[in-house]
Amino acid sequence: MKYVYFPGCKIPAWLPAYDRATRGIFKALGIDLVDSEFNCCGYPVRHQHLEASLLSSARVLALADQIGAPLMTPCQCCYGNLRHAQYWLGENRVLRRRVNAILRKENLRWKPGIRVRHLLQVLKEDLGLAAVATAVVHPQKDIRVAAHYGCHALRPANIVGFDDPQAPTIFEDLIAVTGATAVDWPLRLNCCGAPLWEKNRVISTRLMQKKIEDADQAGADMICTACTYCQHQFDQVRLETLPHAPPIPAVLYPQLLGLALGIAPAGLGMNENRIQWTPTEGGTP
């Protein structure tokens, strides 16, 4: 299996651990990642200029298409925006014409049908839970994990096509494969507050706090994320703004899976997480 790897802007600069952990598990699972130089997916500018945002995504998709493998991104915001671009470009002829007219100057062209996958989809749907399970050598038993779904990959379902938007199971299934237990927490599908971080800290913090308290009430040992922004929010931002909230660490899914696959914590960038997760007895190898 081979994927064009699209880490987006933030992972290399802000969350290199995500990059390391992703590469680590893909190597362990025998999936090849093709690196290439991409531009931003356009998500940050969508508030300002939808078309510019979609053009950015279209360029990424067109570049991936030239390489000729499906695109995989670990960031849910990138995933969402790329999916929105596919939807709108497929839907709106005027937009498609305008975008392709610009891309043509670089001999690029957006075409429908480029597969865009999020990390979790690759693991569950493309590779399959069974294949992941056979690679697990150190089941992460006795860890209670709150799976944080992340909004931009999940909704709107008719555009992003990630999982059932109201009753998704992909994340819990993938947590179960690592041997850990996915806990029930009512707010699992809610927003982490990251999109408002630079805009309205009061509301952003409240949203985050509610989720952390909810996860705590559900008895979670950790919040597991699969998105750059969500992880940044629950890790670094949380540490700075909510020092007194329940001390639940945030762990990236590939870090959790990596441990189960027998990769050393350092190789997964676990030491870079600001809120360190101390495994309970028998939790990690």
Partner: peptide, 15 residues
Amino acid sequence: EKALPRLFVRTHYQQ
């Protein structure tokens, strides 16, 4: 929404 997937009903809401 919480219980049906646990009863192995594969849900595809909003489709």
